[in-house]
Design a protein around this nucleic acid. Structure first.
Lengths: 196, 196
DNA sequence: CTACTTAGCGCCAGTGACTGACATTCAGGG
DNA sequence: CCCTGAATGTCAGTCACTGGCGCTAAGTAG
C-alpha cells in the first residue's frame, strides 16, 4: 500500500466531525474536510460515498454485531427480550466510545440532514434485525413488527442518554423497555405516572 | 395571482411522480420535471425545497390531521389505543387516494433516497404525535415511546398493505396492533404461530 | 378605464456535491 | 532493480440548489 491507506480514512472522519461541530454541517465543504485531513477532495469520495456517510461508518459493524447477538441470545426468550439482550451488548460499545459517540449523537440530533441519514440507517438496521429474528423461531409478521418497535425503543433510550448523561445508557435502555410494557398494562398506567 | 399559481404545483408533482417511475429517481433531472410540467426549472424550486420533497407534500396535512385525531380521541383510552384511533382515521385518506398513494409508496420503497426522506418524515411525525399525547394525560417518558412504537406499527401496516393489497389498510392496521400485543404476552406466542 | 401593487415566473450566474477518466506515486514481491 | 497494484492527485464535467433582477399578468383602488 502507498502512503497511509486507512490512516487517511480516520483523519477524514476526525476532520469532518470537528468541522461539522465548529461551523455546522451546511457551512462545511468537502474540500475543507479534505484539506484538514491532508488529502485531496477526490480522496474523500473514495472513502465515503457522500458528505453524510462519513459520520456513519460504524453502522455495518453495529449491524453485524447486533445480528450476531440476536443469533446468540439464549433460547426461550420472547422476541423483544432477545432484542433487549442484543441492544444491551451493543450499548456497551457506545458507552466505551463515549468521547466519540456523544458529540456525534449530539451533532446528528441538531442537524436535519444528519437526522435524515440516521433515520434511514435505523430503518435498514431494523430490517436486518427482523431478518435475524426470522432465523430464530419468530414468524414473519411478528419479526418485522418486533424489530421496528424494538429499534424505536433503543433509539428512544439512546436519545434519553444524550439528554440525561447522569444515568448510564444501559439504565436508560432497561427503563425504556420497562416503560414499553407499561403501555400494554390493562389498567391505563399513564394516570398513575401523571398524578404524582 | 398570475397564470396558474397552484396549477403549476400540481403539474410538477404529477410530472415528478411519472418521471421517477419511468426513468427512476436518479436518472431524472429537475429540469426534465419542470419541462414536462411546462415551467422553468427555477419554478420547481420555488414550490419545493428539493427534488425529494415533491413527493411528500401531504405530510403537513397528515401531521395536522393526526394531531387533531389524537386530541379528539375519547377519554380513558390507553396511549396506543389513542394512536390506533388516529391512524385508522388517517388511513382512510390513504385508501381513498389509493391511485395516487399506492404507486407513490411503491416508488418510495424501491428508491433509497426517497426511503431516507420517508424515514425522516416518520421521525418528525412521531415527535408531533408525542407532543399530542403529552397534551393528553400521558407522561413525558411514555409519550415519546408510545409515539415512536405506534408510528413504527403504522408504518409496518402500511408496508404490509402495499405488499398485500388484497386486504384493506384498516385490516392490516388492526392486525399489526393485535400482533403488537402478542409480543408482550407472558407465554412466548411466537411458537404458536410458527408451529402451524 | 387607468395606475398601482403584488405574486409567480423566466433568465442568468454562481456554488458545491459528486463522478468518470487518466496520470502519478509509493509499497512490496520477484 | 524492475514491476505490479492499491491509494492518491488532477481535471473536466454534470446536476442539485440559490440569489438576484427584471417581466408579466391578476387583482385593486381611484
Amino acid at each position: 500500500m502507498p502512503r497511509s491507506g486507512a490512516g487517511a480514512r480516520r483523519r477524514l472522519q476526525q476532520a469532518a466531525l470537528e468541522l461539522y461541530r465548529e461551523r455546522g454541517f451546511d457551512r462545511t465543504t468537502t474540500a475543507e474536510i479534505a484539506a484538514r485531513a491532508g488529502v485531496n477532495e477526490r480522496t474523500f469520495f473514495r472513502h465515503f460515498p457522500d458528505k453524510r456517510e462519513v459520520l456513519f461508518d460504524g453502522e455495518a459493524d453495529l449491524r453485524a454485531a447486533l445480528m450476531q447477538e440476536v443469533a446468540d441470545a439464549p433460547d426461550g426468550l420472547q422476541p423483544l427480550d432477545v432484542l433487549l439482550h442484543a441492544f444491551r451488548k451493543a450499548g456497551r460499545v457506545l458507552e466505551e466510545n463515549r468521547p466519540f459517540s456523544e458529540p456525534r449523537l449530539e451533532l446528528i440530533a441538531k442537524t436535519p440532514a444528519l437526522r435524515e441519514r440516521d433515520a434511514a440507517k435505523g430503518a435498514y438496521l431494523s430490517e436486518a434485525l427482523a431478518e435475524a429474528l426470522r432465523r430464530r423461531d419468530v414468524s414473519d409478521q411478528l419479526a418485522g413488527l418486533a424489530a421496528h418497535t424494538g429499534w424505536a425503543t433503543f433509539h428512544h433510550a439512546a436519545q434519553a442518554w444524550i439528554d440525561d448523561p447522569a444515568q448510564s445508557l444501559d439504565a436508560h435502555l432497561l427503563q425504556a423497555f420497562d416503560d414499553l410494557r407499561i403501555l400494554f398494562a390493562t389498567v391505563p398506567a399513564t394516570r398513575a405516572r401523571s398524578e404524582s
